[in-house]
């Protein structure tokens, strides 16, 4: 049987259900046959009820904003403000610099590969437009300078693709021999 002196300090915790399960069980067993302790527990219960009635719980509405407002009102040292400002600036500058560099690098890529794309397109154009000749062919005559564009594809694809041909002589011939995959530019001396 547990003594009242051992139970008395636990009554307040028992009322608040803060004891370990075996302690709760022991106190409950003691209260079942001890009128004195039961009265003390009743006093604790009454006291707790009165205390809860007296306490005013603060309103939590707009709590975060109020805290932030109070924090903003706290004066920040100039050094800390300066550090924060510089930190933000650094971050923004880094991001801006990185984005600008990315744009420049992309531009460099475009500039680097644009000529190849152009040549590829030109070559496709030339292959489809320019006639393939199997024997000597005279190009149209011009007075001073002649410009011709020609491709000489072999059976399995062009061996030589001429994209520009300028000559001082009026007669220029271009032909290819598919068997030997050889292209010829014939430019006789000017008369």
């Amino acid at each position: 049987m547990t003594d009242c002196r051992e139970i008395a300090p636990l009554l307040g915790f028992f009322e608040d259900s803060e004891l370990e399960p075996h302690e709760m069980q022991e106190v409950a067993r003691h209260l079942a046959h001890c009128k004195g302790c039961e009265g003390s527990l009743s006093d604790y219960t009454t006291l707790g009820r009165h205390l809860r009635a007296v306490v005013i719980e603060p309103s939590l509405a707009n709590f975060a904003n109020n805290v932030q407002r109070r924090l903003d009102e706290v004066p920040v040292p100039l050094r800390v403000r300066l550090e924060r400002h510089l930190g933000q600036l650094t971050e923004r500058w880094t991001a801006s610099l990185a984005l600008t560099s990315a744009a420049l690098a992309l531009g460099a890529w475009v500039l680097l590969f644009a000529p190849y794309a152009q040549r590829y397109l030109e070559r496709r154009q030339n292959t489809s437009v320019v006639a393939t000749t199997q024997g000597p062919t005279q190009t149209p005559e011009h007075d001073e300078s002649e410009t011709a564009s020609g491709a000489a594809p072999a059976e399995d694809g062009p061996q030589t693709v001429i994209s520009r041909l300028e000559a001082r002589t009026p007669d220029v011939a271009v032909w290819s021999e598919p068997e030997t995959k050889t292209t010829v530019i014939w430019i006789p001396d000017a008369p």
């Binding site: 030589t160 693709v161 520009r164 300028e166 001082r168 002589t169 220029v172 530019i185 000017a190």
Partner: peptide, 10 residues
């Protein structure tokens, strides 16, 4: 210069 040409060759 009597002749100028640009071409791609295998």
């Amino acid at each position: 210069p009597t002749m100028t040409t640009d071409f791609h060759m295998m």
